[in-house]
Amino acid sequence: MKLSSARFSAKASALAFAALMPLAAHADRLWLLPSATVLSGNDTWVSVDAAVSDDLFIAGHAPLRLDGLVITAPDGSTGKAENAVTGRFRSVFDLQLTQDGTWRITVDNQMIGAQYKLDGEKKRWRGSVEAFAKEVPANAQDLEVMENDMRVETFVAHGKPSTTALKPTGHGLELVPISSPVDLVSGSTGNFQLMLDGKPAANVKVAVVPGGTRYRDDIKETTLTTDQDGKFNVKFADAGMYWLGAQVRDNHTQLKQAKMRRAAYAATLEVLPQ
């Protein structure tokens, strides 16, 4: 989709803005929020909210669009979202857990942002790598291009947790759970590894924020740093929903015109009481 400086779609502006936000206490965050993360027996349906907001897990800013939604079933196959709809502040869809094990729910978007001059007029553009060559004029002047790679995830399970769906794709910034992401309880420590393009992401800052930020003055953000193997541990003192986020900047771009890539990752994890 071509976007002029005068007409940005809600999808492009919300995703581009949020994907570039630093790990600041009051930045808008992208999140997926499942109605439950652990199910058993005949209970097989979950509903998932998807939004961009300042107050964690309260939809009040912009919806997270579902164009890049990928659902990975426990056997590695692709699951199907049902009843998907996007409203003013959030997107919503249902998912039936037709297999036992851990499911991975991901919104994965790669976007190119460009600004340039054409006949003396300033232009801005957002779109895909494929659309760039077709929609950005070859004679554009003062061209500045940045690649944005954003991944937002959550995890749910029916029955006993499994690991097949947790395998990384090898692209962008990804979380590899060492301990099960659907088997966290208060007082426990979650063990994770951050990967960038399939390799350990060393010395990357990771922010961890418990939900309910609207109802407290202290955001209670914890900042951790991955080790040389991309690994880090999170101590979950209390039960509840947690947001985890990280981002990196590098020059590993797909387009030769792009000088920088920003890769961002965010996940929602549920910690149950002991």
Rank of each mutant, 00 (worst) to 15 (best):
1 M>Y: 04
2 K>E: 13
3 L>R: 10
5 S>P: 02
13 S>N: 10
15 L>V: 12
15 L>H: 13
18 A>S: 12
23 L>P: 03
29 R>H: 10
29 R>I: 08
31 W>S: 00
32 L>H: 06
33 L>G: 00
40 S>C: 01
42 N>D: 15
51 A>I: 06
55 D>T: 10
76 G>N: 12
79 G>C: 05
86 T>C: 02
88 R>H: 11
98 T>D: 14
101 G>F: 06
105 I>E: 08
112 I>R: 02
113 G>A: 12
114 A>T: 08
115 Q>M: 12
122 K>G: 13
126 R>N: 12
129 V>Y: 11
132 F>G: 08
135 E>T: 12
142 D>T: 15
146 M>F: 13
147 E>Y: 02
150 M>P: 01
155 F>C: 05
157 A>D: 02
161 P>C: 11
162 S>K: 14
162 S>P: 14
163 T>A: 15
163 T>Y: 14
168 P>E: 14
168 P>H: 12
170 G>I: 06
170 G>W: 07
171 H>Q: 15
173 L>D: 03
177 P>M: 09
180 S>P: 08
181 P>Q: 03
186 S>I: 01
189 T>W: 04
195 M>Q: 14
196 L>K: 13
200 P>K: 09
202 A>M: 08
204 V>A: 05
204 V>G: 04
205 K>G: 05
210 P>T: 01
210 P>Q: 00
212 G>I: 08
212 G>P: 08
212 G>W: 04
214 R>T: 12
215 Y>T: 07
217 D>C: 00
219 I>A: 10
222 T>S: 13
224 L>T: 04
227 D>R: 04
227 D>W: 01
234 V>E: 05
234 V>F: 02
237 A>G: 00
241 M>V: 03
243 W>R: 08
250 D>Q: 10
252 H>E: 13
253 T>G: 09
261 R>I: 11
261 R>Y: 09
267 A>C: 11
271 V>Q: 03
